[in-house]
Design a protein around this nucleic acid. Structure first.
Lengths: 214, 214
DNA sequence: GTCTATACACCGATAGAC
DNA sequence: GTCTATCGGTGTATAGAC
């Protein structure tokens, strides 16, 4: 994948207008197949493998057809990410309606696929303008959603306890779950069992189950 | 960057032996310039931008010269990573000799460049065999080093406190510092101030300064 | 909407002269 | 050690027929 910023502007064209190539509709089945293919390649082979040829092959289509539905490869990537974040946010909202939102949240973000999603987005954002904006929007919104719900679980800050706000808890949980997932996939295990025990302790403390302590 | 696994084996060649192309020495100035250039391109433009042509340009050399010093681009990437991890481990050992090893460790891994290193390595490892092994070795070794030192700071597990082992603490610290660094670079700030306050509380608890409490 | 044909740049890697 | 020359493959993207 080379960046879209590399291809030159059309001669005499303005910076904003495209030379008016035809474009397919947003609700097309073929278009959706391309988004699906992009997700698969992205997850299995990394973003460097996302090319018009590779995606067309994955979807069983011709390479040039990609450019009927998307102006550039960047646009395809961005569309794929947007669809994904919308679904992730919808699922997050449902998850947070659980009777045990903290536990439900931890279980959800601990899934390899969910953790991998956020991780890949963040990695991509480093060198990709459009994705960066989308990632920022997604992370800020999900953190706000989580903090809103979690704050109800932790109203009392005791003297001997750490000053852990809901937003900080949300941030810590997502970073630890992502690292756990990523390291597990890589084959790293040091400290994993211990930190899972620590998390279990915290879950019990802030969101106790029926067989509650004392 | 395409993977080295894509180029075919030489006709009749074994899986192990290369066709004996000439190779330059390991201590060459030119070779080091290539490693430096690779680090720079990697950090500034991402690993997808690491090509023999781009690296040669960055180092002011001819593209084909890369193949005098490295058999493949994968080998160049790997050599760059190895040099980096060796330096990082050396610095970690020095840092852990501090009078306040926990604080020193947190300050070190909180540096944007250090956090970015580990993060980029992990991202690359996902789809790159050789790097994965190197990343695993590096993370396991640094976590063992940290746990060894940190375990001396936290011998007493109190009843009302979370069961946080040294290895778990090391793992939590690295994941949070990496996420903080990555998000900061992306422009995300939610929860950052709160979690920094939480970390400060933990540092004071496990590794108190002179103006100690009680 | 999907096809063929095609442009042009960049990629990894090699051969062999100097 | 560094050079020139070169190979086949892949990349983005467009034009225009059907």
């Amino acid at each position: 994948m080379r960046s879209a910023t590399l291809h030159p502007l059309p001669e005499g064209g303005s910076r904003v207008m495209k030379p008016a190539r035809r474009m397919g509709p947003a609700n097309s089945e073929t278009r959706m197949a391309m988004l699906d293919a992009t997700e698969r390649v992205l997850r299995d082979e990394g973003y460097a493998a996302v090319s018009s040829r590779r995606i067309a092959q994955e979807a069983g289509l011709k390479q040039q057809l990609v450019y009927y539905y998307f102006h550039t490869m960047d646009e395809l990537l961005l569309a794929t990410f947007r669809r994904r974040t919308e679904r992730a946010l919808a699922r997050l909202r449902t998850t947070l309606e659980s009777d045990h939102p903290l536990r439900a949240l931890w279980e959800m973000i601990s899934e390899q696929s969910v953790a991998g999603l956020s991780g890949e987005f963040m990695a991509l954002a480093n060198h990709h303008e459009g994705i960066r904006a989308e990632v920022t929007r997604y992370v800020e919104e999900s953190r706000a959603l989580e903090a809103q719900v979690l704050s109800r679980l932790m109203p009392k800050a005791q003297a001997g306890s750490p000053p852990l706000s809901a937003a900080a808890l949300s941030m810590a949980m997502s970073s630890i779950s992502q690292t756990l997932a990523r390291e597990t996939e890589t084959g790293i295990t040091s400290g994993h069992a211990d930190i899972r025990a620590f998390i279990a302790w915290c879950l019990e403390r802030f969101d106790p189950t029926e067989k509650s302590h004392s």
